[in-house]
């Protein structure tokens, strides 16, 4: 799909000492972690741990109070806005699936298709046959062939999740941030999603936030545990599950 960048950075994502507070409440508290190119990383943590806030900070929706966020070692993400960051190659799937409700599945995917995002380019844009095939491939991949001409608003929750994943694929970012993709999916779909994410990692770097332990297990990747805005533990799923602090947080009062 996309050519592998000539210069391979040491870290695709580098988060260091990030703190973000809302009215004095620290949603992120001195958070640090890194993601290597091609890595697949799962982030777990109880509700309110700051997972979504972390994504907001990476994608430019929020500016951190203090701390550094670097993309590909050199780009300071805190200095850019959402659209710029997206165009640099960071894609995001929201916790609450958001697709464009009054556009069809096809049109949703067309919008997400990587390419020039300028105003006048869009005005005179024509889909090439190649792009059409690519969209159709993705539709096939996410299993929405039947729904190709349906409006986004007419899809079920799970279908919206898939459409959003499809959009993310079409956007073809270097780094994918995926917030709770398995919510609202059947077990089978969950499995498929996990497989899909595993497949695209390697070529892309993927950060997945999830609650569902089965899903995490299926991802079979390093896990970072977030708690009250900082990293509580890091390691394989078995390691963190054996960690006393993690047990305390999950099972304790």
């Amino acid at each position: 799909m996309k050519m592998i960048p000539k210069h391979i950075p040491q870290h695709i994502l580098y988060v260091d000492g990030v703190t973000k507070s809302f009215d004095g409440f620290k949603a992120l508290n001195d958070l640090s972690f890194t993601v290597k190119p091609g890595e697949l990383r799962a982030i777990i943590g109880p509700n309110g741990a700051g997972k979504t806030t972390m994504m907001d900070v990476i994608t430019g929706k929020l500016k951190p109070d203090v701390g550094d966020v670097f993309f590909r070692d050199s780009v300071d993400l805190t200095k850019h806005d959402e659209a710029e960051i997206a165009n640099m190659g960071i894609g995001r799937k929201f916790q609450k699936p958001t697709v464009i409700e009054s556009l069809t599945v096809f049109q949703n995917l067309e919008l997400a298709l990587s390419g020039n995002r300028g105003v006048f380019k869009s005005l005179f844009h024509k889909l090439s046959g190649e792009q059409r095939t690519q969209i159709d491939e993705v539709i096939e991949l996410v299993g929405l062939t039947e729904k190709r001409q349906e409006l986004g608003g007419a899809l079920s929750h799970g279908q919206k999740q898939w459409l959003e994943i499809g959009m993310l694929l079409n956007q073809d970012p270097d780094l994918l941030l995926v917030d709770e993709p398995a919510a609202g999916m059947t077990d089978h779909e969950t499995e498929l999603t996990a497989k899909l994410l595993r497949d695209i990692s390697g070529e892309h770097s993927v950060v997945v936030v999830e609650h569902d332990m089965e899903f995490i297990k299926a991802l079979d990747c390093p896990v970072t545990v977030l708690h009250e805005g900082y990293v509580l533990a890091e390691g394989t799923l078995e390691q963190v599950q054996a960690d006393d602090k993690v047990i305390e947080v999950y099972l304790g009062r």
Partner: peptide
């Protein structure tokens, strides 16, 4: 205008402005 791709970007801005930003469209320009 509305039947071009730009029109679809406009609709996406209408329906989900911040989503359009995260796809990479500079909403303010449109």
């Amino acid at each position: 205008v509305v039947s071009s791709k730009l029109g679809r970007v406009l609709i996406s801005i209408r329906d989900a402005e911040s989503r359009s930003r995260f796809i990479g469209y500079r909403v303010e320009h449109f």
